[in-house]
Each structure stands twice: as C-alpha cells, then as structure tokens.
Design a protein around this nucleic acid. Structure first.
Length: 287
DNA sequence: GAATCTTCCTGGGCGC
DNA sequence: TGCGCCCAGGAAGATT
C-alpha cells in the first residue's frame, strides 16, 4: 500500500503514529486526510513539506487512491480482518481514549495506495490546500474550483476522441470508464468523435450530463458490481441498476430500442448505442 | 509538448 | 475437477 510512497512503508507508519486527523478532503478520484504528525516526528516528514505553503501549520496530506478495488473501512478492532487487508490504523479519540475502531485499507488488486505529501494553495472548498504531488489533477465537476467554460475550451483544443479527453484527469477529474460511457450516452455522442470537431454547446451539454451522472450516482452510493465496491461502512451502492450504456451490451437502448454495442477502446471496452451515438463519419467505414 | 502505449496486479469467470 | 486464458481498470512513466 506504500508503493507510491518513496520513503517506504516504515516511514509512512512512523509519521502517522500519533498523528492527529484534522480534516478529510478529496479531488476527483483522490482523497486525503489532512494530518498533523506528532511534533516529535517532525524530522521524519520534513521532506514531504517541500513545495508546501506555510510549513509551520504542521499539516501534511495522507493521500489515498483506491485504484479500482481499494476500500477504506472503519471497523471494530475485534472484527476479523478482511482478506487482502494491507494496512491497519488504530483510531484513538479525543484525549487519547481508545475508540475500539480501526481504519483498515483493503485492496484485492493492489492498484490503490497511500502516500504522504505537503499541502499548497488553500482555496474555496479546500481550506487546507491541495497535496503538492497531485497538483496536476484538474478540479472535478463537483468542486467550487471547477470552471465549466475553461474546461469546454480546453477540451475543444484537443484533436483526440472526446472519451479520451473526458478520461484525462489533467483536464477534468473524477470520471472513469463507467461514468464516461454514461455521460456520452446521455449526450448522444460517440466517444471517438474528435473533441475539436464538437461545438462549444455540445461539449457544455456533455459536461452537464457528466455532472448529473456523478450527482445521481453519489446519491445511490456509487456503482457496485460486487462486494469490492463499498463505502467506509462496507455498504454497496445501487447506481449499477441505473446504467444505460456501460455493461449493457446486447440490451435495448432505453431511448431508441437499438441494441447497445461494445467496442474495444484503449485495451478495454466502450459501450454505446448505435442508434443514438453514431460513429464519426471519417471512422464509419471501419466499423 | 502532446498523444499514445506499456506496465503494474489479482480473482472471477469461462472454455476445454 | 482443474488448467490456462481473458478481463476488469487508474495513472505513472516510457515512447512515439
């Protein structure tokens, strides 16, 4: 779990021992705990503060990425550890009172992980700043910092397929393969349409649909295909029941009745409706 | 500098 | 029953 933390797992554990959790924040698919390490551990994490604002605040970010199968679970210490538990953090309450609870990081495919980083650039919605090492990640559509018109302009400058651009976390974050396909279905766009050939209103509509998809999915607890996808209390989400395109190959499109198709895309799959989401003309004859 | 490809990783599901 | 293969996917780093 400390693979992306260069100084290694022992260092991570040393800095976090006795650290105080001050806040929890997120951007796109990254989440982080704002922690204040024990003053006695100050030398240990001095290098994490490089590039950070106001190092005197004593705060550092514990960045977490769940990859595709990672879970952050808060469970009673006497509950058996799930298979693939890679990290256990005993939680202590105010005044050092034992809480009997543990934060556990569980990950089957080990694409997820933890890393420490300094914080910089406090802004609306992120009063403690953003971790330095994820400075390249663009705001997601649910953040105050998200600038719709700037993203529309940025996307339209790319000659790449619109889905590829939608998945580029440096342009807009928080959208993965599932929500990209759902957003494109709602916007009636094929993912291989070059972004630069779309009008500004078309891209704007796509982003508005993406925003809707994220809000609706969150309201249902996310998209759970199996027990891998759960919240901090181990509960599944129900958005998979609302999917119109992703994973629906061979089923009729809810809008037009044509059968949803599956196509190869970047060594994975894209799902779309052949009726509502026509392939770009220049590519049609290859289909 | 941007676009694209490769790599990391494991368990479930499938065909034989 | 068991083996081998494919598939899922985010993003860093390498390559074009």
């Amino acid at each position: 779990m400390a693979r992306r933390h260069a100084p290694g797992p022992d260092h991570l554990a040393a800095v976090l021992t006795g650290a105080q959790v001050r806040a929890v924040d997120r951007r796109g698919k990254y989440l982080w705990l704002v922690v204040r390490p024990d003053p006695g551990a100050e030398e240990l994490w001095a290098h994490e503060r490089a590039g950070a604002d106001d190092p005197a605040s004593g705060e550092v970010a514990l960045i977490v990425h769940l990859g595709m199968s990672g879970q952050m679970l808060v469970q009673a210490a006497d509950m058996p550890e799930p298979t693939h538990t890679h990290g256990v953090f005993p939680l202590v309450g105010e005044g050092g009172v034992e809480s009997g609870a543990q934060l556990r990081f569980v990950d089957q495919r080990t694409f997820g992980g933890f890393a420490l980083s300094g914080l910089t650039g406090a802004q609306a919605g992120h009063p403690h700043g953003i971790p330095v090492t994820i400075g390249h990640i663009a705001p997601d559509p649910l953040e105050p910092a998200f600038d719709l018109e700037a993203v529309v302009a940025r996307m339209r400058r790319s000659a790449s397929g619109i889905k590829r651009v939608l998945l580029n976390q440096n342009v807009i974050s928080g959208i993965g393969n599932i929500y990209a396909d759902e957003s494109l279905w709602r916007a009636r766009l094929h993912g291989e349409r070059p972004a630069s050939t779309l009008t500004a209103p078309a891209v704007r509509r796509l982003l508005e649909h993406a925003h809707e998809v994220l809000v609706e999915s969150l309201a249902q607890g996310g998209t759970s295909f199996d027990a891998l996808y759960v919240n901090v209390n181990g509960q599944s989400g129900y958005f998979s029941r609302s999917l119109d395109a992703y994973g629906q190959e061979g089923r009729p499109c809810r809008r037009c009745g044509r059968l949803i198709r599956r196509e190869q895309f970047m060594n994975r799959s894209s799902y779309s409706c052949p009726g509502c989401q026509s392939r770009p003309r220049a590519l049609s004859h290859h289909a």
